[in-house]
Design a protein around this nucleic acid. Structure first.
Length: 404
RNA sequence: GGAGGGGUGGCCGAGCGGUCAAUGGCAGCAGACUGUAAAUCUGCCGGGUUUCACCCUACGUUGGUUCAAAUCCAACCCCCUCCA
């Protein structure tokens, strides 16, 4: 389908679109003038992870196309807990934790969006503003009457729990009502006419557009992104070590860069389109490379994606360190460091750098030939390491022992 | 309420008195091959230490039987299936 609005053209060309409630009407609205759209984010953790990046990039494209993004923080809904995809009720957070998480998350958004008072400047709002003000009886009469329990019970998030006879509290059951109500509030307060989110949010988003139509008689749209998977079928961004965090406190710049650098060949083009600002013809050229060329494309992906989230300087530094470490066998400033006062053994160095959790594990690395000092395989557990030397565990983990 | 079946290492899933730190698969780590890829092959894969060995902790929970229990018994907790 071809779109006339720059916004939908961009999203479509870059692979962001899964479903739209009324694509033609949304396209017409976005073509006619600036629209306001929002994405809701949870604040159960102090940082967002790669799984949220698609939505963040979508808001970025929205803004670049001249529209106004709203970042909705789920301060109120976090007190309720989204039952989607969870087998058990989430642990509930208190106000202090939620506020701290929100402040931390805001710093991430400031990298991707321009905030301010201008017509296309992003704003961040907290749904606790209205949710905690609600009065029960009026809310039930005005909003609750538009929700059919029969239909709510058919939602996957609810059905899953009921089918397994797992407890679903009334508190959680209300989550979808609140999410729909958020949309209504944003529609009234900010003239918001579009909610975006992941494909798992489709049902909740449609609830919102329906609610707005029923109560206020206005049109509202919904747009979802496809679930981003890797070429090998695994979920994007899930590693054995946990989520890939966007916040540098939880994941060093170098590791973030490395995450992108290790993208599968087949995913390079897709990820460049989704997670960088590079023009599409440049992406097409990079994705078509193979052999040594695709490795260059991965470096571009890593540097561009890191630059967006962590800043250009951090991205370049990570790239330079990676080049020096992997291509030239040397070292770089962005490698993890372990400060020592006196020479240590290889075992202590591996643990100190976090490459081994125990002496046992470190010994295994040595026994298997995976431990190296300045690139030379170590054969003895007692091999000494002096400040200034590089210690490696396997092919990808490198660190520097420095003088304390 | 009645009748059965089951709860095992990060996950799935064997074992059903000693040879069990527990087959196998997945995930993970390391090595080989490469391109810091994929696929493939090999090794490792509860923790600790003075590591061809030893010591801890583990098979839902708590007790018991036994020289010896993941394996048998009892009670309890939880899950599943069928009947009411």
């Amino acid at each position: 389908m071809t779109h006339s609005s720059e916004f939908l053209q961009r999203l479509d060309a870059r692979g962001f679109i899964h479903q739209i409630t009324d694509a033609a009407a949304l396209d017409a609205a976005a073509h006619k003038g600036p629209i306001t759209a929002y994405v809701g984010f949870d604040c159960t953790a102090p940082s967002l992870h790669i799984g949220n990046l698609v939505s963040i990039m979508m808001l970025r494209h929205l803004q670049q196309a001249g529209h106004k993004p709203i970042v909705l923080m789920g301060g109120g809904t976090t007190k309720v807990g989204d039952p989607s995809g969870k087998d058990e009720a989430r642990q509930l957070l208190d106000d202090g934790q939620i506020a701290a998480n929100m402040a931390s998350i805001r710093r991430i958004f400031e990298r991707f969006l321009r905030f301010g008072d201008g017509p296309s400047d992003a704003i961040m709002v907290n749904n606790d503003e209205w949710l905690s003000q609600l009065r029960y009886i009026p809310f039930l009469r005005d909003v609750g009457r538009h929700f059919s329990v029969n239909r709510m019970l058919s939602f996957d998030s609810v059905k899953l729990r009921l089918d397994r006879e797992q407890p679903l509290s009334f508190l959680e059951f209300n989550y979808m009502i609140f999410q729909a109500y958020d949309y209504l509030e944003l529609s009234r307060r900010h003239g918001c006419t579009l909610q975006m989110g992941g494909s798992d949010q489709w049902g909740n988003i449609v609830n919102g557009t329906d609610l707005i139509r029923r109560i206020d008689g206005r049109e509202a749209f919904g747009l979802t992104t496809p679930l981003i998977t890797r070429a090998d079928g695994a979920k994007m961004g899930k590693t054995a070590r946990g989520a890939v965090w966007l916040h540098e406190d939880q994941l060093p710049h170098f590791d973030y860069w490395q995450f992108w650098r290790n993208t599968h060949d087949a995913d390079v083009g897709k990820f460049l389109a989704l997670f960088t600002d590079l023009p599409l013809d440049e992406i097409a050229r990079l994705a078509a490379l193979d052999g040594a060329g695709i490795n260059h494309a991965k470096e571009v992906l890593a540097t561009e994606a890191t630059a967006l989230c962590r800043g250009r300087a951090a991205a370049e530094a990570a790239a330079a360190t990676a080049r020096a470490t992997f291509a030239d066998g040397g070292t770089g400033a962005a490698l993890p460091q372990f400060a020592v006062a006196a020479p240590v053994t290889i075992i202590e160095a591996l643990i100190g750098l976090g490459f081994a959790a125990s002496k046992n594990e470190a010994r295994k690395l040595v026994a298997q030939g995976g431990a190296r000092i300045d690139g030379n395989a170590v054969t003895s557990d007692a091999a000494p390491v002096a400040p200034g030397q590089k210690v490696s565990a396997g092919k990808k983990r490198h660190g520097l022992v420095v003088a304390a």
